[in-house]
Amino acid sequence: MRRILIIGATSAIAEATAREFAARGDALCLVGRDAGRLAAIAQDLGVRGAVRTATATLDVTDFAAHAGVIDLAERELGGLDTLLVAHGTLTDQAEAEASVDTLRREFDINAISVMALLTPVANRFAKQGFGSIAVISSVAGDRGRMSNYVYGSAKAAVSAFLSGLRQRLQKSGVNVLTIKPGFVDTPMTKDFPKGALWAKPEDVAKGIVKAIDKGRSVVYLPWFWSLIMLVIRNVPEFVFKRVKL
């Protein structure tokens, strides 16, 4: 049985992932902004088989509240061995180009808050000598593109942070997983026209659970994004800068 803390638990991808965990009888602490929706998700996970659920509200930009939430999760679940960080906002690129306030707020949500949450949890897991850390970054972090480089660079910061953390925790028995989804049909992307490359949250969720169980380091979901991003990362800059992406 895993004891799992999920930050951003109302996210569609996180909820689908939590259902996978619940069905096998794990214990979950759900953290998000909306107490009512968290309670509804907790009831659902209970019916699906979660041995224990707890909820806590948190706006991730309230940095002072982070430690309290982690303590609560550990207390409620009788320990902690898995962390899934899923919160995020799809930055309005045009707005972030026009406003430094927007730029900073988006970095707070998508990058700084993630690192701030990872720091104390990593230290705890290192101390206890086991644990799994899984964070939803994005393929958008693999290379900055004109259409969403503010979001992309925040995700890039997260991906780089995770690769360093992974090296550091390697010897402590703690696994660090970087999750890089492609296009997923969720409320975050509700205004996008959907095509063949789009995945369902349920499918991404299965991939996440499998990667956590196997102790993987980096996973692209669905897998074919690893090929797409291999190409995109390797286009020479002098060509890339002329392309509209």
Partner: peptide, 11 residues
């Protein structure tokens, strides 16, 4: 569209 209302409440 109601498919997003897909939670169990109690059984």
């Amino acid at each position: 569209c109601t498919r997003g209302l897909d939670r169990f409440i109690a059984f």
